[in-house]
Design a binder for these strands. Sequence first.
DNA 1: TATAATTTAATTGTACTCAATTTAAAATAA
DNA 2: TTATTTTAAATTGAGTACAATTAAATTATA
Lengths: 146, 146
Amino acid sequence: MEEKNYEGLKLENQLCFPLYAASREIIKRYRPFLDELELTYTQYITMMVFWQEKTINVKDLGRKLFLDSGTITPVLKHLEAKNYITRSRSHEDERVVIAEITSEGEALKEKAASVPPKIACCIKLSPDEAITLYSLLYKLLSDGCE
Amino acid sequence: MEEKNYEGLKLENQLCFPLYAASREIIKRYRPFLDELELTYTQYITMMVFWQEKTINVKDLGRKLFLDSGTITPVLKHLEAKNYITRSRSHEDERVVIAEITSEGEALKEKAASVPPKIACCIKLSPDEAITLYSLLYKLLSDGCE
DNA sequence: TATAATTTAATTGTACTCAATTTAAAATAA
DNA sequence: TTATTTTAAATTGAGTACAATTAAATTATA
């Protein structure tokens, strides 16, 4: 009779659990700073894309943020309600919705620029550790489940 | 006039974003395996605690999982509905709710034991990389925003 | 002891997150 | 062309997450 191995079911032996917990904990540290901008974390990283791209469609935005239209559509509607972006159908392909940053959205970048330095102080990793973590996370993101 | 530095607002310069994205991506890889157990990821890690502890109150469970009662209460209600745990008030302190695993909950451990080895195959990190990632994540979790 | 402060869960309300479905438009095949 | 398939967003529904509030029980303090 085989004796089953339950070590893999212990919380302290999980890799995904601290990933999940740390993600939420760090996002929580953003909150006081994002509250000043009246943005959620998801809205904040969405705006980051617009500050770089000016214009993007839902599909490409989803690929960048690892989110699907079910999540993105309401986020874009919130940002549109705040007048940070506009949404319209593409003339070339009516299926495609193109979102574009407004001047108010551009202006928000000014205030948002103060967030990254403040967050940096909250994350007690050395530059080397941060680089290592960064590359390991992108390694996880790049190679999917075969 | 100062020229503002916007490098910190670029998505590729974020540490939190890949953390957030990788967390969700890895949890997605659990789904086909957890579907067989009819558990969500949150319910799964909650059951992990019960497989180790047998009995725990909401507060201690929250400390272990980095979740508050607003999240935990409905999760425990779901697990109770599936007959994997019971919930009752402590006699010593009526404020405290104690949850306890049932024999059905214990039995689920058998099926769940197959999940960790399957997930291990989906995560393409070397043992060294996994250990490094693990310790960096716990480092993030341990030291809060001063 | 009576009151105030604290603690524990639950509740409420907002916002994600995602699988699955739907709808409309476009691309491809018959 | 006409029919089929594919694609892009939106919608729907279930389940978190979490801040803020509430209610009840406990503890501390005047």
